[in-house]
Amino acid sequence: MERIEGSGASQLVQLIRAIGYNSDVSIELATVTSAPPELKIKVDHMNVELEKDDLIVAESLTKHKRTINLKSSGGTKISASSPPLPAPPTGLKVGVTMVQMPPGPHDHPLSFTSLDLSDADQTVEEAELEFVDELKKDDRVLVAGIQQGQFYIILDRAVMY
Results as ranks from 00 to 15, higher is better:
58 A>Y: 04
46 M>C: 07
128 E>T: 13
90 T>L: 11
51 E>R: 03
60 S>I: 15
93 K>W: 04
142 L>W: 05
121 D>M: 06
106 H>V: 04
80 A>K: 09
114 S>C: 12
134 E>I: 03
11 Q>F: 03
19 I>W: 13
120 A>F: 06
5 E>L: 13
41 I>P: 01
60 S>K: 15
112 F>H: 11
105 P>N: 08
82 S>C: 09
81 S>E: 07
139 D>L: 04
99 V>C: 00
89 P>Y: 10
9 A>R: 14
140 R>T: 03
77 K>D: 08
83 P>R: 07
32 V>Y: 06
12 L>R: 12
48 V>H: 05
2 E>R: 09
36 P>H: 06
143 V>I: 08
103 P>Y: 06
39 L>E: 02
15 L>S: 02
113 T>S: 08
121 D>E: 10
102 P>G: 03
121 D>T: 11
29 L>K: 12
111 S>C: 09
64 H>P: 05
41 I>F: 05
57 V>C: 04
117 L>W: 06
26 S>K: 09
113 T>W: 05
140 R>H: 02
88 P>V: 15
85 L>G: 05
78 I>L: 14
24 D>S: 15
82 S>M: 11
73 S>N: 12
82 S>W: 09
75 G>F: 03
105 P>G: 03
76 T>F: 09
66 R>I: 11
93 K>Q: 12
117 L>C: 07
155 L>K: 09
106 H>I: 05
127 A>P: 10
146 I>H: 11
143 V>N: 00
141 V>I: 11
105 P>K: 09
107 D>W: 07
56 I>Y: 01
155 L>M: 15
124 V>C: 00
57 V>M: 08
10 S>K: 14
81 S>R: 07
14 Q>K: 15
92 L>M: 15
66 R>H: 04
40 K>T: 04
31 T>L: 05
144 A>G: 08
65 K>W: 10
22 N>P: 02
62 T>K: 14
148 Q>V: 08
40 K>G: 02
139 D>M: 06
51 E>I: 00
146 I>N: 06
104 G>L: 02
31 T>K: 10
126 E>F: 08
63 K>M: 14
161 Y>N: 13
140 R>M: 01
44 D>A: 00
69 N>H: 10
45 H>L: 07
88 P>A: 15
98 M>D: 12
19 I>F: 13
66 R>C: 04
45 H>N: 10
61 L>I: 02
6 G>A: 04
9 A>Y: 12
89 P>G: 08
32 V>W: 01
141 V>S: 01
90 T>M: 13
75 G>H: 09
95 G>Y: 08
107 D>L: 14
134 E>D: 14
93 K>E: 11
87 A>S: 12
155 L>C: 14
97 T>G: 01
133 D>Q: 04
147 Q>R: 14
16 I>W: 01
131 F>I: 10
158 A>D: 12
115 L>V: 13
102 P>L: 02
86 P>D: 06
50 L>D: 01
29 L>P: 01
148 Q>P: 00
29 L>G: 08
72 S>A: 15
2 E>P: 10
73 S>P: 00
5 E>G: 05
8 G>M: 10
1 M>G: 15
93 K>L: 12
14 Q>D: 12
5 E>Y: 11
124 V>F: 00
18 A>N: 13
127 A>E: 14
112 F>D: 06
3 R>T: 13
128 E>G: 00
47 N>H: 09
50 L>G: 01
